[in-house]
């Protein structure tokens, strides 16, 4: 196995294992094409000399923390550093029709998708062929098994207080980036009041988006999925989600 193949295989394995990994490639100067594969506690390959490798490793780890890719000068060489952080995860609670469309679109966008529902007839592999994981359990039981991280997004689609409320309560215990819950304005307002009565603070309730999604008049399951993903994209980029024709400034966001 050549060095280039070994490096590629190491990168590939990290991506498959969802381990954060950066690659550093010389694009100008000595040794164009030389590569480093940088993980949190491991470095493979060389750009040419140990000092360059050390500096590149430090830069790569800092960029990996930010989830950002860029080209930088290291000594006389210009290198391109590509960050591949662990993928964002969408947790869909409620294996309903809108959840099927949401799962499909979220997979296309590069999310890992986990589907949770206590109803075993709904939470099936046939209905969610692309899901990374399907858990048949009550929302709070499932949440107890999962280590929710800050790049997780939770869409609660159960539309039934007996599932929604434990789902929201347990989601609020996590550092999830996004918590949205389906329901009409009336359902959402009633749910908010019941959760308040259970002792959940207004500050916590502020984290819950409900009715879920952007205001695009979504009606079909697919439209609802787009509306929800639109809200998630907007939140990742710190945007409100209006029409670009009525906005100014940069079209593209810095994804967080």
């Amino acid at each position: 196995m050549t060095d280039a193949i070994a490096l590629h295989e190491r990168y590939l394995r990290a991506v498959q294992e969802r381990t954060p990994v950066a690659t550093v490639t010389v694009i100008r100067g000595d040794g164009v094409g030389a590569k480093l594969v940088v993980l949190a506690d491991e470095v493979q390959g060389t750009l040419g000399d140990a000092a360059t490798d050390r500096e590149a490793t430090d830069r790569a780890r800092a960029l990996l923390d930010e989830g950002r890719s860029t080209s930088v000068m290291i000594g006389e060489r210009e290198v391109y550093i590509e960050s591949t952080p662990s993928p964002p995860t969408l947790l869909i609670i409620g294996a309903v029709h809108a959840g099927q469309a949401l799962c499909m679109f979220a997979k296309a966008m590069g999310f890992d998708v986990i589907v949770v529902d206590a109803r075993e007839k709904l939470a099936t592999r046939e209905r969610f062929p692309q899901a990374d994981q399907i858990i048949v359990a009550w929302p709070d039981e499932a949440m107890a098994q999962l280590e929710v991280r800050p790049n997780w997004f939770i869409a609660i689609l159960t539309h039934d207080p007996k599932f929604d409320e434990p789902a929201i309560s347990s989601a609020l215990q996590t550092p999830a980036r996004y918590i949205g819950a389906i329901g009409s304005r009336k359902t959402s307002a009633d749910r908010r009041q019941r959760l308040r009565d259970l002792g959940i603070s207004d500050e916590d309730l502020e984290r819950v988006r409900g009715p879920i999604g952007l205001d695009i008049g979504a009606a079909s399951p697919e439209e609802m999925a787009i509306s929800i993903l639109g809200e998630i994209i907007a939140m990742r980029n710190g945007r409100g989600g209006g029409a670009l024709t009525h906005a100014s400034g940069s079209i593209r966001g810095q994804q967080g």
Binding site: A4, I5, H8, E9, S71, Y80
Partner: peptide, 10 residues
């Protein structure tokens, strides 16, 4: 834009 083109794993 600058685009870097390289062979994969060779």
């Amino acid at each position: 834009i600058e685009v870097f083109v390289e062979p994969v794993a060779e």
